[in-house]
Design a binder for these strands. Sequence first.
DNA 1: CCAGTTTTTGACAATGGTTGTCAGTTTACC
DNA 2: GGTAAACTGACAACCATTGTCAAAAACTGG
Lengths: 138, 138
Amino acid sequence: MSAREQPVKEQRRTRQRAAVDEVLDETDDFISAQELHSILRSRGASVGLATVYRTLQALADDGRVDVLRTGGGEAAYRKCARDEHHHHLVCRSCGATVEIAGPAVERWTSSVAKEHGYVDVAHTLEIFGTCPKCAGQS
Amino acid sequence: MSAREQPVKEQRRTRQRAAVDEVLDETDDFISAQELHSILRSRGASVGLATVYRTLQALADDGRVDVLRTGGGEAAYRKCARDEHHHHLVCRSCGATVEIAGPAVERWTSSVAKEHGYVDVAHTLEIFGTCPKCAGQS
DNA sequence: CCAGTTTTTGACAATGGTTGTCAGTTTACC
DNA sequence: GGTAAACTGACAACCATTGTCAAAAACTGG
Ligand SMILES: [Zn+2]
Ligand SMILES: [Zn+2]
Ligand SMILES: [Zn+2]
Ligand SMILES: [Zn+2]
């Protein structure tokens, strides 16, 4: 969703953070904190729920993962391939995600904002749908 | 955010629904259910919080108000001027809203989705910034 | 206006995701 | 090893939102 900068404050390497990071690396879909937590449980690597939330929050703040709010209002996280600003085409049912870039949209949003005198502009854009796989099995 | 169709099921006219509708008519910014509720309280027209939520929900379902999730994850509602599908340019600081339409974006999102085989597609797009008025007085 | 039927209301409980607390544990560094 | 500082986790607390259900209001036909 957004490119990030320098900060990356001092952080210690812990078993828990490594575990969360590992799951994120292996997962291609957007997943919620709770889902990530239960994946960890099911694989034996016990990590407190609060820690999962804190870790994801930190990663998101550093721009190392993308966040989006699902229809139900929960936050979903994903470690994206590209580092530059981009958007997502997400399956409502299974979370399957396609990263998409739209230079034209970027230009349009900033020109519209400028046109109305707005500054310090940002935007959110996500496309939701049902992926081919989920559509097949009704 | 979206145009709506026929249903508009049988509903009774009640003091509470009229009160909510009135506040929406007078308010030009996006407001949350809780804010709307406290406005009603402060003006003496007592309406239960659950009723406010239900009423807004119904209005949103019928497409008579637009909804957007704020950064904090709460839903904000607004009765927009135009009835067709459109998006918003919202001031982060004061909530001032400009309705915007972008046919090109609409085409782009659906073509991208189709291209990847996704069906039953929808999208969210909001632009946030600081309006001229708020930018002037730092 | 009246009684009957159906919808709506609201106080309150319950939910569910997320964050705060804080003592005990772990890490980083000398 | 020893210490300071960061981290963890069980659990409570939050807070927006939804569910419950008996009482109240809106409609309808007479
Ligand atoms: Zn899917
Ligand atoms: Zn963009
Ligand atoms: Zn403003
Ligand atoms: Zn659109």
